[in-house]
Amino acid sequence: MSGAGRIRVACLGAGYFAQFHYDSWARMPEVELVGSCDMDLVKAAATGLPAYDDVGQMLDEADPDVLDIILPPDAHAAAIEQAIVHGVKTIICQKPFCRALAEARHITHRAESAGVTLVVHENFRFQPWYRAIKSALADGAVGQFHQATFRFRPGDGQGPRAYLDRQPYFQKMPRFLVHETAVHWIDTFRYLFGEPVSVYADLRKLNPVIDGEDAGYILFEYANGARTLFDGNRHLDHAADNLRRTMGEALIEGSEGVINLTGDGAVSLRAKGAIEADPILGADAWNGFGGDCVHAFQSHVIAGLKSGSAFENTAPDYLNVLEIEEAVYASAKLGQKIDLRAK
């Protein structure tokens, strides 16, 4: 799609996280929001858009160029199918993408066969600190890359009311820490460091009121011998005025220096042998979610539609993330390293 006309966007879902989607779309002069659909019609109406509780009716009446699916994974495949049937040619779908890898593969193939562009709304790689880190690595800031660690510490997992005030379905997800959350860093590590060749995982559940795991280690190996570690624990916090800004802290270490990400979104570089670090990116001042990464991602999609440029995180590419996720769970179950090259 290209040209000067506004792109018509309809949204399916009006729950907690949807607020960031609607806010972002409303800030784009090249976008016209044409409808909101939710099982709770009151929530859909609260967006101020034409409100629906039937997605088929919305697609027929609003005739969007883009459908933005902002639903939990159980509803993804059916919603994508409906959009395909109704002739929508560009679909954005929130993560976690579908319920399982097999379902994601099926609906991805269905979209490809119908000539539909399906993009997974994976926005963490669009957070400004990861864009800055990517640029620094490309410039050789740390020399030969050796290892990286991300310490996931959102501090929201303790007690019987964990997650109930924001996203209550978290408590009932049989696969939680990895399927819902660590997939962000599976994708971000791919963006920063390339495709891993093996994975080892040790997962556990600390809060007895939830169904899935909420803590664990995931160790990735790369063809050049480098390693990255996702160290996740939803019960613990980190030094930040907003625990949901970066959700943790990171170190990216190499032969010539160390890049440090702190909880305020600042990125710095300490050269090998130095005491002080030099700033790469200042502290984040955005009051919303994740350095305004939702807006960065959605702007990326609109720019691609207007110019014909390539999209990041199309569904066929994102299947790699889900294949790695399956390997993570297999590793944790078997207690052994999984070779990702042996697909």
Rank of each mutant, 00 (worst) to 15 (best):
I107E: 11
V34K: 08
A102M: 12
R151N: 07
P50E: 03
E249F: 01
A46W: 03
V301H: 01
S331E: 12
R6D: 01
V199E: 10
I7G: 04
M58A: 05
L164H: 10
A51G: 03
A51M: 04
D278I: 09
W286H: 11
F297P: 00
R8Q: 06
G263W: 03
V178M: 05
A296C: 07
L67T: 11
V301P: 01
H295K: 14
G159M: 05
F20T: 15
Q94T: 11
L206V: 10
R175M: 02
Y163L: 04
L269R: 14
W129V: 10
D339V: 03
R110P: 00
V142E: 09
M247F: 04
Q171F: 05
V328M: 09
S113E: 12
Y22N: 14
G308T: 08
F124Q: 15
F220H: 11
V294G: 01
Y222I: 09
L67R: 13
M173L: 12
G159S: 08
F170I: 15
N123Y: 05
F230Y: 08
A114K: 04
T314M: 06
A46K: 15
Y163D: 02
C11D: 01
A18T: 13
E112D: 12
P279D: 06
A201L: 01
T47I: 02
Y130Q: 11
K89G: 08
E312P: 01
Y22K: 13
R227P: 00
I218N: 12
A285W: 01
Y16W: 08
D237M: 12
R244C: 10
G3I: 03
E256R: 15
G282I: 04
L322W: 06
V321N: 12
K134P: 00
R151P: 00
N233Y: 00
V183G: 12
A111T: 04
V209Q: 13
A100R: 15
Y200C: 10
D264G: 08
P72T: 14
K333M: 08
P196L: 07
A77T: 03
G87I: 03
A327C: 09
Y16H: 14
I69Y: 02
I338H: 07
L49E: 05
G257T: 07
A271S: 11
D339M: 00
V258T: 13
A26R: 13
A18F: 08
D63T: 14
V197E: 11
A83R: 12
D241H: 11
M173W: 07
A296T: 09
E195D: 06
E32N: 06
G35C: 04
L33W: 00
Q298G: 02
F150S: 08
